[in-house]
Amino acid sequence: LTVHVGNVTYHFDNPEQAEEWAKRMAKKYQGQIHVKDGQFRIE
């Protein structure tokens, strides 16, 4: 699973971990989480 934050990409084996990280990053950067094809993108 991949989480994109700006132009930085993080890889996770565990979906719960990826989702948790995406939520934390979205809160930190006050962005929206977009989920597409098993990838999380924070914008």
Rank of each mutant, 00 (worst) to 15 (best):
Q39P: 02
K36W: 12
A18I: 04
V35Y: 14
V3T: 00
T2F: 09
E19V: 08
D13P: 07
F40Q: 07
W21Y: 08
E20M: 08
G38L: 05
V3A: 01
Q32D: 08
Q32S: 11
E16F: 11
G38A: 02
Q17W: 10
E43P: 05
P15A: 13
R41Y: 15
F40D: 07
G6F: 11
V35A: 04
Q17T: 10
D37G: 03
V5D: 02
R24H: 11
V35M: 11
D13W: 06
H4F: 08
Q17N: 06
R24L: 14
Y10V: 05
N7Q: 09
Q32E: 12
W21I: 02
F40A: 08
E20P: 00
E16Y: 11
E43H: 08
V5I: 13
A22T: 02
R24N: 06
K28W: 08
K36G: 07
T9N: 03
N7E: 09
M25Q: 03
Q39Y: 07
M25N: 02
Y29C: 15
I42A: 03
G31L: 14
Q39A: 12
E20S: 08
Q30S: 10
Y10M: 04
F40K: 10
N14T: 12
Q32C: 12
N14V: 07
G6T: 01
Q17A: 14
F12V: 00
E16K: 13
W21T: 01
Y29A: 03
Q32N: 06
Q17F: 07
E43K: 05
V5P: 00
T2M: 09
D37C: 14
F40H: 07
H11V: 11
E19P: 03
A26W: 04
D37R: 00
Q17V: 11
V35S: 05
V3G: 01
H11D: 03
K28H: 13
H4L: 13
T9Q: 09
A26M: 05
A18V: 04
K27F: 04
H4W: 12
G31I: 13
L1A: 14
L1S: 14
E43L: 13
E16N: 10
A18D: 01
H11A: 05
D13G: 05
G6D: 09
T2P: 01
M25D: 00
H34S: 13
E43M: 10
D13T: 11
H34E: 10
H4Y: 08
I42R: 03
K36P: 03
T2L: 11
I33N: 02
K27C: 15
H11F: 12
A22R: 03
E19H: 10
H4G: 04
M25S: 01
Q39W: 07
W21S: 01
D13Q: 08
D13Y: 05
P15Q: 11
Y29F: 10
E19R: 08
V8A: 08
F40G: 07
A22F: 05
E43D: 09
G38I: 03
E16H: 13
T9W: 06
K27H: 09
W21G: 00
P15F: 14
E20G: 03
I42Y: 05
E43T: 11
A22P: 00
Y10T: 02
Q17Y: 09
K28Q: 07
K28V: 08
K23E: 09
R24Y: 13
A22N: 01
Q32G: 04
E43G: 07
F12M: 00
F12K: 00
V5T: 01
K36I: 15
K36F: 13
Y10W: 13
H34C: 15
A18F: 11
R41I: 15
V8R: 13
L1I: 13
E16A: 11
R24T: 11
E43C: 15
D37N: 07
L1E: 04
Q30M: 10
K23D: 06
H11Q: 09
I33Q: 02
I42N: 06
I42Q: 04
T9E: 08
W21R: 00
V5H: 07
A18H: 02
R24I: 14
R24E: 14
D13C: 15
E19S: 05
A26E: 03
E16G: 07
V3L: 04
I33V: 10
E19T: 06
G38P: 08
K28T: 04
P15W: 13
T9V: 14
P15Y: 15
R41H: 15
Q17M: 10
A22Y: 04
Q39K: 06
R24P: 00
P15N: 07
Q30E: 11
K36D: 11
V35E: 04
K36V: 15
K23F: 06
A22Q: 02
E20Y: 07
P15R: 14
M25H: 03
K23C: 15
